[in-house]
Measured scan of single mutants.
Amino acid sequence: GKELVLALYDYQEKSPREVTMKKGDILTLLNSTNKDWWKVEVKATANDKTYERQGFVPAAYVKKL
């Protein structure tokens, strides 16, 4: 199945390749080969529509579930 990670801290994206997350968010882990930056998929809701974004977050800010 898919691997999930838990956001340990809030993170505000600093570039278009990154994604914003809030502490407590559960994210889908896409790639953890880089030890510093993990690629995740974030589900977000805006205007009653759910959309998914993929991007990088600092590996130290998340932990595998």
Rank of each mutant, 00 (worst) to 15 (best):
A7R: 00
D36W: 15
G1S: 13
L6I: 14
E18I: 03
R17P: 05
N31K: 06
K14E: 07
K63V: 15
L29I: 03
E3P: 12
A59E: 03
N47E: 11
V5L: 10
K63G: 07
E18A: 05
Y11F: 05
Q54D: 05
N34T: 05
G1N: 13
K49Q: 13
V57L: 02
G55P: 00
S32A: 13
L4R: 11
T28S: 09
N31A: 07
E13Y: 04
P16D: 11
W38R: 01
A60V: 08
A44R: 12
T33L: 10
K2D: 08
R53L: 07
D36G: 08
V42E: 03
E52K: 14
K14T: 13
V19H: 01
S32Y: 06
E13F: 05
L30H: 04
V57D: 03
E41S: 14
T45M: 13
T20H: 04
P58H: 02
F56Q: 03
A7N: 01
K64S: 08
E52L: 15
V5R: 01
Q12P: 05
P58A: 02
E52T: 15
L4H: 09
L6D: 00
T28W: 13
G1D: 12
K35Y: 06
K64R: 12
K2N: 10
L29G: 00
R53Q: 06
V42K: 15
S32H: 06
L65S: 03
Q54S: 11
Y51L: 11
L27P: 01
K43N: 12
N47A: 11
G55S: 00
S15I: 04
W38G: 00
G55C: 05
I26R: 05
V57E: 01
L27R: 00
V62G: 01
K39G: 04
T45F: 12
M21K: 00
P58Y: 04
V62A: 02
K49G: 13
G1Q: 13
L4Q: 10
K43I: 15
S15A: 08
R53H: 06
V40M: 00
T50S: 11
E13I: 04
E41F: 05
T50E: 15
Y61E: 03
V62M: 06
V5F: 05
W37Q: 02
K63N: 06
A7V: 09
V40H: 00
D25K: 01
V62W: 01
N31D: 15
N34E: 09
P58K: 04
N34V: 04
Q12F: 14
A46C: 15
F56T: 03
D10F: 04
L27H: 03
Q54E: 08
N31F: 06
L27F: 06
L6Y: 09
E13D: 04
S32E: 14
K23L: 03
G24Q: 02
V5I: 07
E3F: 12
K22S: 08
E41N: 07
P58E: 02
K2G: 09
L30G: 00
R53I: 08
N47K: 09
A60N: 14
T33V: 10
G24H: 04
D25W: 09
S32V: 06
D25T: 06
E18H: 05
L8H: 03
Y61T: 08
G24K: 02
Y9D: 07
A44C: 15
L29H: 00
D10I: 01
T50P: 10
K63S: 10
E18Y: 05
E52F: 15
R53D: 04
Y51D: 08
T20P: 07
L65E: 03
A7Q: 01
Y9N: 08
E3Q: 13
L27Q: 01
T33R: 11
L8R: 05
K14P: 03
E52Y: 15
L6W: 06
K2V: 12
K2I: 13
T45G: 10
K35C: 09
I26E: 03
K63E: 14
K43W: 12
Y9T: 07
V40C: 02
A59T: 05
A59G: 04
G55L: 05
